[in-house]
Design a protein around this nucleic acid. Structure first.
Lengths: 310, 310
DNA sequence: TAAACAAAATCGGACAAGCAGAGGTAGGCA
DNA sequence: TGCCTACCTCTGCTTGTCCGATTTTGTTTA
């Protein structure tokens, strides 16, 4: 590794000029540096590559020209490597790999992607649904460029931007007596059969919202997808507590559900986007900005049920 | 040029191991050097390429693997560049460009080349006939790999090996009265019409062999090729003084000539091979060795007319 | 829960490499 | 013969690289 790229660059420049002094001027360095570089190249190959004639400059022999050509090619590829690296950072093309915590993202992710990408850009999306821990670990291990997750069991090394704090709300069948109230208390919910979203973070979060011993009716179902929860609720099996709201109030089964704020002072879930904030690829930055913009404007109102005034 | 080949090598090795310490062990350097190299690569591209997890090693993300692949390719080409350079020095293939002073080489050059090259080797020969000064300058300027020349008007910077010292001899028509003598004096030649080889070095050399005012018969012809001189002499136009002897005693015209040593103490011509002795390509070294061997053995007797005992 | 372990980050100092600038020298040219 | 050009050499300074020790952080095991 004695022969450095720098030496090659000096060498080829000197041969191109046939003159050490001119090459030094072009490169803005001292002539002695160039002379040294030429010596290094010759030493590396153990060949005489240039004839140095005082007062007449330098001249490459056939081997020297051969070597210079090869070096120039290598330098060219080096430059293109750097350029490709810059492109990797700059371009909107490439693959954007997003991991998202299953219950939170489907409500808004397509809309964001629609807004900030895909306008004729050459981006391949890889969207992967996973649990909150998997998302965080996947980001840390480089499997994802960005993750949408909630800040529970937060990994310390992870950098993220908060997008939204979503208070829990109560999901009821449209025909349920409580649906007539504009807002509901936890005490009321405690008397209703409950459908619980059974995901790693969610289940414990929702159970934890109740005072110990407060529950008076059973959990009638655990379901591990939001849509199943909504469908069960719509079918009248019970009510549920959720944080994120889909854009529709219909369930898959077609029956109507209603969302009602909860008056109790409950800890919200914090939705965040995690990504490498120090040196993101441009496409990642664009996506993260798009997410933030989305929730700064319309997104917030769409995705949460605002707490009731108390 | 901040990103050195060395840094790339460290970087790729570290990623290959997924572990800085192991990479350091493989490369026999300190781990901190590798950590620095990784930092350099990331800084160069302004991207996070590697996630470092204490107690778990390092892991490249997609961009990191991409960059590592590109770097590995560049390193591969660097190694092949070095290998090609070494081959340039080592191989017997390639082009051997020989410049030779016209009057001296044709007598023996084909035989040498036959002996030391061309045994199934992949060598292209470029033989260029020229004058003594052109040969020397061409070597210094890298146009020739080796030159066969005489050490008159010697360029100071030129390195060479002496092959042969060739005393002048007298060339006579076979029918000439002097041809009966085993050797001849300059005084005898001075009375004969003379044919002179008119080449830059030769003409003055031959004229200088005579004492000032000693010539009693005219120069009947100047000819600028050895063969023309021999033909003129064979035709009986006069006699000539030469140094190198062809392998045949017939001239192109078919008439016979004879060579006779000169008894006077005259300066010989020194035949030499000039080439870069400090770092020759292998093919050049082989050729030069072949020349020296040739004249150490049979070549000498074939090419000169030994001086007569006085 | 604590202790032991593993691996990366950090820091300071030693060493080497690269470079600038001055002075020297050989070759070309008028 | 003297001047000019352009390379070479040498010295000291600056920068970079590397090592080794220490610290920090995270994992695994008792």
């Amino acid at each position: 590794m004695a022969l450095t790229l720098k030496a090659m660059a000096y060498f080829t420049t000197a041969l191109r000029h046939g003159n050490i002094a001119k090459a030094a001027a072009e490169l803005n360095i001292a002539a002695s540096a160039i002379a040294t570089a030429i010596d290094q190249v010759e030493a590396e190959f153990g060949l005489t590559l240039v004839t140095r004639q005082r007062a007449r400059g330098i001249q490459a022999n056939a081997s020297g020209r051969e070597v210079a050509r090869k070096c120039a090619r290598l330098l060219e590829e080096y430059r293109s490597l750097l350029a490709e690296g810059a492109a990797l950072k700059q371009s909107l093309s490439g693959t954007l790999r997003v991991g998202y915590y299953a219950p939170i993202a489907p409500a808004f992710l397509p809309q964001i992607l629609e807004n900030c990408l895909l306008h004729g850009t050459d981006v391949t999306l890889e969207l992967e649904e996973c649990d909150n821990d998997q998302a965080q670990d996947g980001l840390l291990e480089g499997r994802y460029d960005a993750i949408l997750f909630v800040t529970e069991d937060l990994r310390p090394a992870l950098t993220y931007d908060t997008l939204l704090t979503a208070p829990p709300y109560c999901l009821l069948p449209a025909t349920h007596p409580l649906a007539a109230h504009p807002s509901i208390t936890m005490a009321q919910i405690a008397r209703e059969p409950l459908v619980v979203l059974n995901r790693p973070v969610a289940a414990s979060y929702y159970e934890g919202l109740f005072e110990p011993g407060a529950r008076q009716a059973p959990v009638v179902a655990y379901a591990n997808s939001t849509e199943m929860v909504r469908s069960l609720v719509a079918a009248g099996r019970g009510c549920a507590i959720l944080n994120m709201r889909p854009l529709t109030s219909e369930s898959y089964s077609g029956a109507k559900v209603v969302e009602r704020p909860i008056t109790d002072d409950l800890p919200p879930l914090t939705l965040a986007i995690g990504y490498d904030r120090s040196a993101p690829r441009r496409i990642v930055q664009v996506f993260a900005d798009g997410c933030r913009r989305h929730f700064a404007r319309t997104g917030r109102a769409q995705c949460i049920v605002p707490p009731a005034p108390r």
